[in-house]
Design a protein around this nucleic acid. Structure first.
Lengths: 335, 335
DNA sequence: TTGTATGCGTTATCAT
DNA sequence: ATGATAACGCATACAA
């Protein structure tokens, strides 16, 4: 049996000729250690290549210094090629890195996956949980909050639970988009909405409805699920139901890209015959044919803000229950 | 000071009227426990809502039941909207879920980030490490391997270290693409290569070079970094340097999408004047104008296989040093 | 300022 | 088959 494992606090202490407690102090940056001794310890640490055992530390501190980011695996949106998923992760990572915490990624698509996430998070194996892109009314966030585990969601939780969340101004962005269409003379404005069990889908549709209503126009709605395929199908439906439409607001760039192609195949010119506006401003938007006018949302910033809020919560602080980030209309050639 | 923390093994033991050891056995599925007692324990566990403390377990078992996936944060490729990054993650997650292990995601873009990754992984806070999309000769993988920490890379490590890796058949895929161009009468075939410090960039360029050489054609090379922007710039260079080109193999779909646009802006028709073939077969490929002929690589499968290999390694097993997955030419309209 | 002693919640070894 | 008991590596209250 090799005792040749990695060096422990004990080993460093022996080497530096001090006690474990002192080494622990130095390692954790306590200021009440004599300069001389501190240096000796640092030297010993370097020589031995000592790295603290996180499990041991966690056992006594009751903290894990890691947080979980939960995403619904089956959301096509999450794994299609818009930047939503990577953007969120990147934002979260940046903030976490600054706080020297680890990111545990959990995909909760299948029932089994959801079960796993529930076990893991309720078991307090992380200091807090971030939920991205919730579907329907997921009971887990509220449950965790009840257990006293810090939770922050992306998008207002649909079950009305008073959980803290970070989201963008969907309605404002969509309004500006639709108003732009109206302002450029469009009157028969349709929409391809997102799924009705996701906040983003609901809010963007609401923004569309209230803006066309305010202008005295009638609504023409087809529903997709944020994927290109669904966008193409919805566009075909729309053309069949309302062949006279002269504009369409599409709730995601991916669906808009597909709609563009469907319109082209149907012989409609964009924007001459039909104006198209998307939502997201993913990189693709600038490369569609024609380049897509769209509503930009600061995805990465969502991740960052969610993380900041969570860390504040985990540190025992209090936060604002909701944080709404601005959206912006990006004008290109499609409308 | 509240002792109201979560229930421990001890609490369950008291409730079930047995010893801690027995509860531990039941929880870990030992078969040497009387049926009656086992049930009593299970009941107690359920009633108390007991969940094992992973830190404590990890402290004694010397395992963490989690593995790290390291990605170079600054690689534009990783965070642009091709599915590479999400695809790898998804594949890794699936396999990890099956093995009931956690995924710790680490972005190692900045020097500070790389430092963090090194500390964390060498500190054995994970049971193994997956490296995705390595840049240049990163010393970390080899270092970890030397420390006896299981490591699997995506793509053959450039420093020639004999580390196990999983990759796709770049050369084979590119050869088929270029041969297709030749077979359809193209003779002035250029390429937009990927970065020369990444395996994918190097291999795909090699595949191009050897195939055109074998056909007695001359090479025309421009270099990009897998991003759209770089693709557009490279395409402009190519048109300036070799205005007579009649085909271009582009090392990523993103760059190809930009090249398509650049060609269109330059008044070249695709595929009539210039044939274009990409690499990746991301979702976008089917929606470009015209739809992109491209080389498909099984991204998600890379993630799965890497994970399988790593778990095998972590379990003390041995694995093949290299696993090369097949690529496939997908014919659409651009070539 | 430094050292001693204790406990965090598990698993595993050894008796029984 | 079950129960004591000893680690695992660390942070911290308390003593010095």
């Amino acid at each position: 049996m090799r005792t040749a494992g990695r060096p422990t606090l004990e080993a460093v202490a022996r080497r530096a000729g001090v006690s474990r407690a002192t080494v622990s102090r130095v390692v954790n940056g306590s200021t009440t250690v004599a300069e001389e001794i501190r240096e000796a310890v640092h030297r010993a640490v370097a020589e031995l290549g000592y790295v603290p055992n996180l499990a041991a530390r966690s056992l006594v501190t009751q903290r894990t210094d890691s947080i979980a980011l939960v995403m619904p695996e089956d959301a096509n949106r999450v794994f299609s090629d818009d930047q939503f998923f990577p953007g969120i992760i990147r934002g979260v990572s940046q903030e976490l890195e600054a706080a020297d915490k680890q990111l545990v990624l959990m995909l909760a698509g299948s029932p089994a996956g959801r079960e796993r996430v529930a076990r893991y998070t309720t078991g307090r194996h992380v200091d807090g949980v971030l939920f991205a892109s919730l579907h329907a009314a997921d009971p887990l966030p509220a449950l965790l909050a009840q257990l006293g585990i810090p939770v922050v969601c992306n998008g207002r939780p649909l079950d009305g639970a008073g959980l803290p969340y970070v989201d963008v101004d969907h309605v404002g962005g969509v309004s500006r988009a639709v108003e732009h269409l109206i302002g450029t003379g469009r009157r028969r404005i349709a929409t391809i909405a997102g799924p009705s069990d996701m906040v983003a889908g609901i809010e963007r549709l609401a923004g569309y409805r209230q803006t066309v209503a305010a202008a005295g126009l009638s609504a023409r709605v087809a529903v997709g699920d944020f994927t290109r395929e669904s966008g193409a199908a919805a566009m075909r439906d729309l053309l069949a139901q309302h062949p006279d439409l002269d504009a369409v607001f599409v709730a995601s760039d991916l669906m808009a890209q597909a709609a563009l192609r469907t319109l082209r195949e149907a012989g409609r010119r964009v924007p001459d015959d039909v104006a198209v506006i998307g939502f997201d401003d993913t990189e693709t938007a600038a490369y569609t044919e024609p380049p897509l006018t769209t509503v930009r949302q600061p995805i990465q910033e969502i991740g960052r803000q969610m993380t900041r809020q969570l860390l504040r919560l985990a540190a025992g602080g209090s936060i604002e229950p909701a944080l709404v980030l601005p959206t912006e209309l990006i004008l290109r050639d499609s409308a």
